[in-house]
């Protein structure tokens, strides 16, 4: 799917090849443990899930085949479409905000100061789990008692119902996850920045280019391959947002933060409709595959970097 383009590199590299070799046996040995784990704990459950999406299954009695019923129900289910919309909105906000912020932080870590403590600090939030991050912000952003709103009120501003207003809730959840992940993303980008030779910047400086100008015409283009890797990983992760919603809003108010994973979970374990939940999971999987594919094509297609 996406590996076809990356495969070119190892083949064209390597000047001293001893002619075509075939390492199939060795390769099999090397991937065997991973393959077992992959097959048993990921592929098999997924195949089973896809099968269950064509059944009526309440988890405890044997599944009954019901054809496309679940998919028909899905297409007609307004809550599903709303969940899809909410999820997309979340991903857009989360990824957009996070990527821009991470990029700025990374550039600053590169151009302003390269001290380790700074990188250490921005990575700290990543050490706690999503659950903990959600809990802490739930407490900080509480409408009445949270210190966030207490501060707002003390400077004369109106309190903001961060997690209980339909307009605020998705941006707030996006922010919580940005808080946890931005340092990590920034570090990945920072690492990418370090692969850009200083000489390029020096040349730019001699030409009298400003920082902003250098950022736009040197940093961004040369960083594209790493950005694309970071984006693929973060977008896929972002689509699967669950913990934060489960802890902080339970999908509310009304349906305004009912993201897909949360709706699926609720249908599967709260309402025992595992067949329908499976069908929606298949839809989510399909969306992820398509989006990743498009992303890969887009970022690869115009990658004209160092090399």
């Amino acid at each position: 799917m996406m590996a076809t383009t990356t495969s070119i590199e190892p083949v064209k590299a390597g000047p001293a090849r001893k002619g075509p070799r075939d390492d199939t046996r060795l390769a099999l040995l090397f991937i065997l443990p991973a393959l077992i784990g992959f097959g048993v704990f990921l592929v098999w459950p997924t195949l089973r899930g896809i099968y269950l999406s064509f059944t009526k299954f309440n988890l405890l009695t044997p599944p009954e085949f019901n054809g496309l019923d679940n998919y028909i129900r899905m297409v007609q289910d307004p809550v599903f479409w709303n969940a899809m919309k909410v999820t997309l909105y979340y991903v857009l906000l989360n990824i957009g905000f996070q990527t821009v912020l991470a990029l700025v932080i990374a550039v600053m870590m590169q151009r302003l100061t390269q001290r380790t403590w700074l990188r250490g600090i921005v990575l700290t939030p990543f050490l706690v789990s999503n659950v903990v991050a959600a809990m802490v912000f739930l407490w900080i952003l509480d409408y009445q008692l949270g210190i966030g709103n207490t501060i707002l009120a003390s400077v004369g501003l109106d309190r903001i119902p961060f997690l209980s207003d339909s307009a605020w809730v998705i941006p707030t959840i996006a922010f919580i996850n940005v808080w946890r992940h931005v340092g990590y993303t920034a570090l990945l980008i920072f690492a990418g920045l370090q692969t850009i030779p200083d000489s390029v910047y020096e040349a730019g400086r001699i030409d009298g280019a400003s920082e902003v100008r250098m950022f736009r015409s040197i940093t961004v283009p040369l960083l594209r391959p790493i950005l694309s890797l970071v984006l693929i990983i973060t977008v896929v992760g972002s689509f699967q947002v669950f913990d934060t919603v489960a802890i902080a809003t339970k999908g509310g108010p009304v349906d305004s933060s009912r993201v897909l994973q949360y709706y699926i979970y609720d249908v599967a374990f709260g309402r025992f409709q595992f067949g329908y939940a499976s069908a929606m999971s298949v839809a989510l999987l399909a969306v992820l595959v398509i989006i990743t594919f498009i992303q890969y094509r887009l970022t690869r297609a115009e990658s004209s970097d160092l090399a």
Partner: peptide
């Protein structure tokens, strides 16, 4: 390593990145 279908198998592995957790939990 050089082996047949390497890229296809890799792509398959990568697709695993996208499997929703809900599928795997109960099995």
């Amino acid at each position: 390593l050089q082996w047949r279908h390497r890229e296809k198998v890799f792509a398959f592995f990568l697709a695993g990145l996208m499997i929703p957790a809900i599928f795997t939990l109960l099995p």
